[in-house]
Design a protein around this nucleic acid. Structure first.
Lengths: 333, 333
DNA sequence: AAAAGGCTTTAAAACGCTTGCATTTGTTTT
DNA sequence: AAAACAAATGCAAGCGTTTTAAAGCCTTTT
């Protein structure tokens, strides 16, 4: 009643060749006479042999699996990236170990360690706060890492993003051009560089360019969730803001619906531009105007970059910015 | 410039004990004198030793990773399950290899094979069409498998779901009770047992119970997507249906918005009950009435069940049905 | 104080594969 | 036909752990 697994040794015996030869044909090594290859292949087929990837990993020191640290799969922004990652991973014969971190430094560290323990060949990290702990772990391990849709303000780590500063600046400028003098900026944790540094800078730049004053009171920091969006509407309403740029789509829909349920009319009473152009933006009524970004591609390109890193290829530029845009739909005039 | 990894052997040498002893302390084996344990632990800490999970896997024939086959992470229904899966996997010290299949039999088979090759300890499968190929692979491999939110009409494979028949029956009955004589049934691929068998049966049962005739024309088969929902509204409108039960939330929102954009008023002109109660249902306006099901828990319970299977524990009932309900929100009277 | 046991600890054999090097076989040259 | 060289194949040493059987080391017993 044992596992009774078929090993490379069995194949070798049945085909009367050495393990090395079997290994070669399995790995597509060209140094095998066609006839032998055929013979071996037949035995493999007959015995239904499946190479053991674990043993392979131990011998070759390559696991062909990469770790993916994601804040929450349930968030459409991240899952869109994840899809891109998985697709190109598959394309390059890698598998993905997916681990949710909730952007919790503790969990991130924990997860990173077990990933390293599992000898992943590379890591894709999503999450906008890179603690010094993480940073030093990254540095210590020789495992290649790339950030996807996540910013490293030091630009030490390879990453793929859009130009958040420019994108937000353009979004805010659009709103200002529409006649809004008071534009709210609502996003997540401002301790995260993507918010407190990049997006906020874009916001300020647009204001400055239009000669408008920066007002602390128009900056709203909350969490990326639908509920948070609904909850923050009253606060925004209490100001004289007539428009908002929002850092997350779920948050934006929450805000939109919160306002709508409060009888605000879009885009006449209020305008919104959200940030991620996930499929949610087309599901709301009115549909949401948004900064567009190629979510799937960000994941895909990140993974592609990682393959190069794992392959020790020379990289020209490891801080990649993909193109963004602005689509105006129902929440802007 | 080499990898310069620290192995169990280094630790053993430094602590002047054997590898076996180090292995024991690492694995929490109680047969180690406290003094030795302490000594070893100190060395481990000093050398910053990290056990190599691959070598461990080879020696122990356990990888502490499970494979998760998912149609598409980007679909909120499945990602909700995935989150539940990952959380309890983590709880039990397992990692997840996540692979998208697009419910494509070819890819599923392919993925299943690489998962098996990687020696996963178990598999969670999401997908509603279990081809005979898959079924035989499942049977052949000794690797435990459980279906999450996916039905096996033969009940051969362990699974966790809700009672789709009863749920749909209740949903349709609710609509009938509201005065609808003509209720449309719109869902995905009818070749999938969950649709063509379970849900359809529930639909028919409700009709029969109310003495209403079953009309082929009120059954709409399409795909699970927002676009498909928008696209199918005209067809539904062309019938005399005044309500619909929909098999997927994205599809339902598409339908809702398609109808809304066509000036249909909910719930007066038309009623909808959707099936998954994902967070999308609260994002639409009006909010969608829905069958409720504990998505996260389905994943969580499936993973828990899998741990038992992997642990060779005796299972009382391997076809688990979790409770469902009906919430009436804005799309029903 | 020798015999019995119970803990600890060690030695070494797996685990299933890759890979550098040696060897054999086959093909050209001369 | 021998010498050279190239192509195929085989050998065997790892890869870093776990694990079983055996050996040591202490206490207890008697």
């Amino acid at each position: 009643m044992e596992k009774q697994t078929i090993t490379i040794y069995d194949v070798a015996r049945e085909a009367s060749v050495s393990m090395a030869t079997v290994s070669r044909v399995v790995n597509g090594n060209p140094n095998v006479k066609p006839a032998t290859r055929k013979k071996v292949l037949e035995v493999i087929d007959r015995l239904d042999y499946r190479p053991n990837a674990v043993a392979r990993g131990l011998a070759s020191k390559k696991t062909t699996t990469v770790g993916v640290i994601i804040p929450d799969v349930t968030n459409i922004y991240f899952s869109s990236l994840a899809r891109g990652i998985d697709d190109v991973a598959t394309m390059y014969k890698y598998n993905i170990i997916l681990a949710n971190s909730d952007e919790n430094g503790q969990k991130e560290l924990q997860v990173l360690n077990t990933l390293l323990t599992k000898q992943v060949d590379g890591i894709i990290f999503m999450g906008n706060q890179i603690s010094t702990n993480m940073r030093s772990e990254f540095a210590r391990s020789k495992t290649p890492i790339v950030l996807a849709g996540s910013v490293d303000s030091d630009e030490e780590i390879a990453s793929v993003n859009i130009d958040y500063i420019a994108a937000v600046e353009e979004a805010v400028s659009t709103l200002i051009r529409h006649g809004n003098k008071r534009v709210a900026f609502v996003t997540g944790n401002m301790d995260q560089p993507i918010n407190g540094l990049y997006r906020l800078n874009g916001y300020k730049k647009a204001l400055a360019k239009a000669g408008l004053p920066f007002d602390e009171k128009l900056v709203f920091e909350t969490e990326y969730s639908y509920k948070a969006g609904e909850a923050i509407w009253p606060e925004i309403k209490a100001t004289d803001a007539t428009a908002a740029v929002v850092g997350d789509d779920e948050l934006a829909i929450g805000l939109l619906n919160g306002a709508g349920d409060d009888n605000a009319k879009f885009p006449d009473d209020f305008e919104i531009i959200t940030s991620n152009d996930s499929k949610l933006t087309e599901m709301s009524r009115p549909k949401m105007s948004s900064i567009t970004q190629p979510l799937y591609d960000i994941g895909a390109v990140a993974m592609r970059l990682l393959t190069k890193l794992m392959n020790k290829e020379e990289i020209e530029n490891q801080t990649i910015l993909l193109p963004y845009g602005i689509v105006e739909r129902g929440t802007t005039k």
